[in-house]
Nucleic acid binder design. Structure first.
Lengths: 122, 122
DNA sequence: GCAAGTCGATTACATTTGTAATCAATGAGG
DNA sequence: CCTCATTGATTACAAATGTAATCGACTTGC
């Protein structure tokens, strides 16, 4: 399963999670404003993601349409867990506590999260 | 400031955050149960951390005592922020929402976070 | 039909990272 | 004194990563 996805690869995944399937060109285009990667670079990343089993490619005429195989939610869970394990001994509340302290959540943020939690308890 | 600290380096930092200053030997000893690194490996990691400005070393006789320069809290903040930015558009509530959906939150987590938020509002 | 463009595939190459062997200096035991 | 152990420094080297040039195959406009 899922070998590790690097930062650059992740940027490519985000594009495809937002909109898929896409050709290599479209992906490169989407990335143009955030990164300044050449087309070959983007294609390399696509190939690596394909090799890692994170993407599937289906031929459309003479080119490929790429689409994510792994779900964003799974990736996000995995990464979140990794961080929480590494830095907070696997406990979530310290993460929230830490971010909250750092960051002066707006009243609105707080309400939002409270609402979420209330929902959960029911 | 702080160049990026790799995973292996982070393990070394954790040891020194828990107890410092320590000699290279002591660090290696502390790591012995979690990792199986040779002493040279640990020393390489210490050198790299020194080069990155994450540690300071003070000579004690013919060896060095290493101590963290960057605070754990700063590192943790940095990494947490990085994750939240990368995966949740910088907003905390989607993180909580995500974890909630995954049912990764224990009842205890929920209570703790609620308490935290209540605290914040006052 | 053929030149020029378009694609994916292959190859490249520097840097970072993980992991460690080896070297050189120094200090300690005999 | 001299040998040996200890310790930091230097060097090594494969794998992963970031970034890209180049190649070869296939279209497509003339």
């Amino acid at each position: 399963m899922a070998e590790r996805i690097s930062d650059a690869e992740h940027a490519v995944m985000e594009v495809l999670w937002a909109d898929a399937p896409l050709t290599a060109n479209s992906v490169a285009e989407m990335l143009a404003d955030s990164q300044s990667w050449s087309l070959p670079t983007v294609k390399t990343l696509l190939s690596r993601l394909l090799a890692k089993g994170a993407l599937a490619a289906e031929a459309e005429g003479r080119r490929f349409l790429y689409r994510p195989i792994i779900a964003r939610a799974d990736y996000v869970s995995h990464e979140s867990r990794r961080l929480v394990d590494r830095l907070f001994g696997g406990k979530l509340s310290p993460l929230v506590a830490h971010l909250a302290e750092q960051e002066a959540l707006t009243a609105e943020d707080i309400s939002e999260i409270e609402a979420l939690l209330k929902e959960l308890k029911s």
